[in-house]
Design a protein around this nucleic acid. Sequence first.
RNA 1: GUGAGCGUGGCCAAGUCGGUUAAGGCGCCAGGUUGUGGCCCUGGAGAUCGAGGGUUCGAAUCCCUUCGCUCACCCCA
Length: 424
Amino acid sequence: MEFQAPRGTTDVLPDDQGYWRYVESTASQVAESFGYRRIDTPVFEDTNLFVRGIGDSTDIVEKETYTFKDRGGDSLTLRPEGTASICRAYLQHGMHNMPQPVRLFYLCPNFRYERPQAGRFRAFHQFGIEAFGESDPYIDAEVIEVSWRFLKAVGIDDISLSINSIGDMDCRPKYVDALKTHYQNHSSSLCPDCHRRLDTNPLRLLDCKIESCQPIIESAPKGTEYLCIPCNTHWLQLQEYLTAVGIRFNVDNTLVRGLDYYSRTVYEITPPTDRRTNVIAGGGRYDGLLEQLGGPATPGIGFGMGIERVIENIKRLGINIVADSKLNIMLAHMGEPAKKESIRLSSEIRQLGAEAFVGPSRGLKSQMRYASNMNASHTIIIGDDELSSGTYTVRDLTSGDQSEMTADGILNFVKDYDNSHRVN
RNA sequence: GUGAGCGUGGCCAAGUCGGUUAAGGCGCCAGGUUGUGGCCCUGGAGAUCGAGGGUUCGAAUCCCUUCGCUCACCCCA
């Protein structure tokens, strides 16, 4: 085959569309039930937005962006995550003048140039929310609850929540120093990656998976023991609020996140399999981000969730997406006059809001088979006999019952059916 | 970027110590009622065996190159 979808991208075929619509509509419903309103931003942004927002030393910005110059010479980047764009929109449209907090959610594609593997794509989709202008920990608990309730609502039940606090500008540096000191004392037994991390991203040291590094991680100082008073209060209240809404969590002091902008609360939700490999949702607080992007100091918190990963888990659990059984009529025809009549009548039916399509120009048997395979609910059979008598044969494909109806009778049937038989 | 596995009709695939027309299943099309689906039976269409080169009388099967896919690391949703 000459052409195929670019590496790390996939086609969502008709058979899979049900999952996507199910996930998207559930996401909207759950987010809206918490007072979040949808926002859509462009797929590409000024490259500097991501450099300044996400951090120029993060892997995402350093080596995973799709960056290009447009014909005018501006450097643009395909959005690799949702938060930076939404912060930009918040500032651009003066949302800091709206009543705070401002609650927003999004469903959109993101792009990262990575080697694809299980649950990881170059073009992928995220459901996410952001809450701006509230530093009280109730909103941290709320954000976590949105992601939790959504996963439950969609039927993914066997999930676990890990939370941690990585402190703020005040206390985190002290912790990082303590961590570095600890690691420098063990530098002889570190894996090569951890040697690198010690310089580039010390917090990442904590989730190294190499066997020989585990003892060092276990004996490492815990971040939550270095929190300043305000951060510690925030941290403790968050846990109380989560408990209040009945969400179980486990504190994971090795949990850190890959983007520079996080502070205080960070969390992840994972399916039961491997604890770190397939994070479904991750998020946290980013109190310094808006300011860093040139706006007023504004607290913010949100999460991002991989829709492909959600769907993967829905499939893994064999969750049934119930499709509504709608009227879906195929018009079988024999002979040119009948074909013309079926074209006319199908158009009338559609204008009443039902689904109808003309059968393929083949033998009746073949048309019936096609109707069956297309999951048609009814077939209307039109031939010379029907045209001369003015009554058409209507076959219910589920029950196999047949009856004779005039064209007007069929239209009335469609109208009535629509109101009385629709199942959801 | 690193490492491993794999690439045979639309899909799942047998065949891979080289040898006559490359199994089988699903799906598709047709026939088995003169105007009727879902089951069953029969038949049919559809593959230059990822691509290029080489070895050989002869290669899907061996060698080289290349592209692609998958998984793991890294990183992350």
